[in-house]
């Protein structure tokens, strides 16, 4: 799966979770940039990502997530 494909799929998930069809993902994007990205939606986001990509994050990986670019790197390392 290419980085672009991961971004495309992740964009759909973000738009669903935050109910915002205009949301555009950039590597630098963090929780403080997106209205509604609270702890509740964060969990939903992570669980939805696990379901959609058929992957499982390690607890330590989630602890250290910095931004969307970092999240994409972690996904890439798992989907191959």
């Amino acid at each position: 799966m290419t980085t672009e494909q991961i971004y495309a799929k992740l964009t759909d998930i973000f738009r669903d979770v935050f109910d915002d069809e205009s949301l555009v993902l950039t590597p630098e994007l963090t929780a403080s940039d997106v209205p509604g990205w609270d702890s509740f939606n964060h969990i939903n986001l992570i669980v939805a990502t696990e379901v959609q990509f058929k992957i499982k994050f390690k607890t330590a990986e989630l602890e250290s997530l910095r931004n969307v670019g970092h999240l994409v790197e972690v996904i890439a390392s798992k989907v191959g």
Partner: peptide, 14 residues
């Protein structure tokens, strides 16, 4: 169990 440790959710959101 990971979600339990992370967010104290016993039932997964799924």
């Amino acid at each position: 169990p990971a979600l339990w440790h992370r967010s104290k959710q016993e039932v997964s959101p799924r």
